[in-house]
Design a protein around this nucleic acid. Sequence first.
DNA 1: CATGAATGAGAATTCATTCAT
DNA 2: CATGAATGAATTCTCATTCAT
Lengths: 194, 194, 194, 194
Amino acid sequence: MSRHLSEEKRRALMEAAVDLFSTQGFHATPTQQISERAGVSAGTLFRYFRTKEDLIDSLYSSIHRALADAVDEAIRPEIPVEDQIKNVKRQVLHWMFENPKKTLFFEQFSSSPNITEKAKEEVVIRFSALDDLYRKAVSRGILKGVNREVFLANFWYPNFMLIHLHTIGKLQSDVEETIEQSVASMWCGLEQKQ
Amino acid sequence: MSRHLSEEKRRALMEAAVDLFSTQGFHATPTQQISERAGVSAGTLFRYFRTKEDLIDSLYSSIHRALADAVDEAIRPEIPVEDQIKNVKRQVLHWMFENPKKTLFFEQFSSSPNITEKAKEEVVIRFSALDDLYRKAVSRGILKGVNREVFLANFWYPNFMLIHLHTIGKLQSDVEETIEQSVASMWCGLEQKQ
Amino acid sequence: MSRHLSEEKRRALMEAAVDLFSTQGFHATPTQQISERAGVSAGTLFRYFRTKEDLIDSLYSSIHRALADAVDEAIRPEIPVEDQIKNVKRQVLHWMFENPKKTLFFEQFSSSPNITEKAKEEVVIRFSALDDLYRKAVSRGILKGVNREVFLANFWYPNFMLIHLHTIGKLQSDVEETIEQSVASMWCGLEQKQ
Amino acid sequence: MSRHLSEEKRRALMEAAVDLFSTQGFHATPTQQISERAGVSAGTLFRYFRTKEDLIDSLYSSIHRALADAVDEAIRPEIPVEDQIKNVKRQVLHWMFENPKKTLFFEQFSSSPNITEKAKEEVVIRFSALDDLYRKAVSRGILKGVNREVFLANFWYPNFMLIHLHTIGKLQSDVEETIEQSVASMWCGLEQKQ
DNA sequence: CATGAATGAGAATTCATTCAT
DNA sequence: CATGAATGAATTCTCATTCAT
């Protein structure tokens, strides 16, 4: 991309997009509205993103990256695997509660079909660091009876519902408490029959 | 053929709709395509459903009802609450694996914003029978540390991911095994610190 | 038309049609609505009238006939021409105030373009008896300076506006008073500088 | 061409619209046809007018304004009221004969039901300057026996019929002669029994 | 590079009319 | 003859994208 395009505008566009996508869905959000909120003209959006789909993909990638960073940050090879997994979940949930719009967009993208070919391949939310952790846990006898799919399902999906509820203000406990409950219940769930 | 709006056509339309919605999303699915697949003309769809939204809502209601039935069926007041909850989860998962398209549509509807006012009110997937079960469990000292939101999140959302994976053929274990793992890991998760 | 078609239903359909046309306009009135109000099925309408246009034309003809009758009734060869013209106008206005819906439909038809070829030919509201009266008046030196178009315009069109106002309840005086004022002002207008 | 919505195109659209509306009626005129005749694409029309109704309303307003201007222009406080009223009628008729299409559209709009709320309120064609004139005339003893409704009906409605006849070439006398006859016959009509 | 007017391919929906029952 | 479900062409309006300025 040409260096004449301002990074600032790009960011403004993406931010406007998440805001709108997360509350209206991407199909229901005209590019016009995005460019307007970003303070640029309708045509400009298409200098930064070839198509609307391209914008959506970029958004997804950037959020995916942010989540991956959150995951990586929580990895501390020196502490026990189970604590690491707990930490990762905690970290992820913190990020999500701090970025509810991005999270909702992320869910939308993950669960919405056919956005793009990429979508299909990544429906499985896969983060290598977390995969490694899962493998280590299995090889150490923890998580014996739980295969990766169930693990990932338990790890990722409940978060989305919590963010939904948080967004509409229907969460009884405060965020920290909710996060802790969620972390705890996942972990024990994964250990199983312990 | 009867003089009246044929139940058969109505069903055909709804079936066509779930099929297409679940793979393309409802925004990306023209009513034309639905009527075509249902083997009726474009106009006919609107004799059975006032608007596209009405079709979507009807679909949602019917699935919601089916799920509620699945839940109710699994309720056996005479057995321990924890077993009942397990049974419900098992039953629900069975239904979902047997009706993956409906399930994906259901998820789409639940997590998609603004579809309708109904959507907003029901973002929390709420089934009274399950609520009762939850309350009973709490009052009996089980599920002490888990509030309803976390409970529901753990109960419902992981299922969606499993169905996604199942649909794209990325589930390693067979369905029964996956269901059992999911049921077991949820339960233990909910018991917590047991 | 086959004698198996009931005259009663035909009348019901026409009546329903005027009602609806006069308040909604014919373009804005679906045949469905007409048949419904007439208490017959959608298809039946088309057994009595080949097309919607046919229905409209029939309606127009019937109203035209009723008006012509009103005109004819008022003709009394034995009294002075000017009194006859006054009487005709009075009679017409009475009929219109008694049949406001038919009148509004009639105006709509007259002023709406292209309903049918017939429309074009009859934009000039022509009633032979009134024409005769006009000719007689001219040949007797009354109405010298007023050609037929202006005469007809003054005779017919103000009535429509009065009916409009009457219909929406914005007529100050009562009907009789209004009719008398209208008759009087037309006549003097036509006499001119007399 | 300017950066902004071109006034030229707006005018072209409105002109195309009156042309078609006046000959076909607005319900019978697809927006497509209007944009085509205006030499713009189908979508462009909706950049200039939010909806078809908006176009119709704008058209009505602009014609209403033009007529009001014609009325105002004819007002000369220094001459007798009766001459002023005559002048206004003359001026209005001139405008109408020069703008027959606008006139026919105006009539259509005025007499067509339910176009819009505006329609309902303005079925009575009301121009404040003319109202003032009417009031003055009454207070000066002229127009004693004629209430406002009859006055307005006589003032406005016959014009429409004349324009209709003019449009289809069925006017015997020339325009000027017709206007004079119409003005004269209205005036005397209004004085009444004077 | 930015702009925003213009485009035109759809999309949802309506409705006169037909025809099997 | 009556019915009313089915039809599908036609209509209004939207929106991603382009391109002249």
